[in-house]
Simulated assay, not measured.
Amino acid sequence: MTMATDHQRAGHAAAAPFRIGERVTGMTYVPPENRPFEQPRPFEGDVVQIGSGYAGVDAGDAYVWARLDDGTECQALIADTKPTAPETPEASR
């Protein structure tokens, strides 16, 4: 097994549009072979992993994993995921 070096990890982290722990929203990723019985669905959660952690593995499709409010996790394409807007003090009134 090939492990990513710290330099490679830093390069992937710098390219990601969000960080671990950041709140994101998007559509879940469903592999083509699962689409006959599972459909993508909207989600909102906290980023727990960006990419696989292995150099070159995510070259075609960059993934993000998010922990949902119910404690489960989902996988999404980074391209289908965006940071949620920070809540403003006025919005919480």
Rank of each mutant, 00 (worst) to 15 (best):
F43P: 04
M3E: 15
D6I: 02
P86G: 04
T88Y: 02
A76K: 03
A91L: 09
A76Y: 06
A15E: 15
Q39G: 00
V30Y: 03
P31A: 13
A79Y: 00
A10V: 09
P40V: 02
A76H: 07
T88M: 07
Y63W: 10
M1C: 07
A62K: 14
H12F: 11
A85N: 10
A14R: 14
Y54C: 08
Q49E: 12
G11C: 09
R23E: 11
P36K: 01
D70V: 09
A10Y: 10
G71W: 10
F37R: 00
V57G: 01
Q39Y: 00
E38N: 09
A91H: 06
R35C: 01
D80A: 15
M3G: 12
Q39H: 04
D70T: 08
T88R: 14
D6L: 08
H7T: 15
A76R: 02
I78L: 03
S52V: 12
E44G: 10
D70G: 08
Y63P: 03
G26R: 04
D80H: 15
I78G: 01
T88S: 07
A59D: 02
T81L: 10
A79I: 09
D46V: 12
C74Y: 05
G71T: 11
R9Y: 03
R41H: 07
D46G: 03
R41G: 10
A14C: 02
P40C: 03
V30S: 02
P36T: 02
T28R: 00
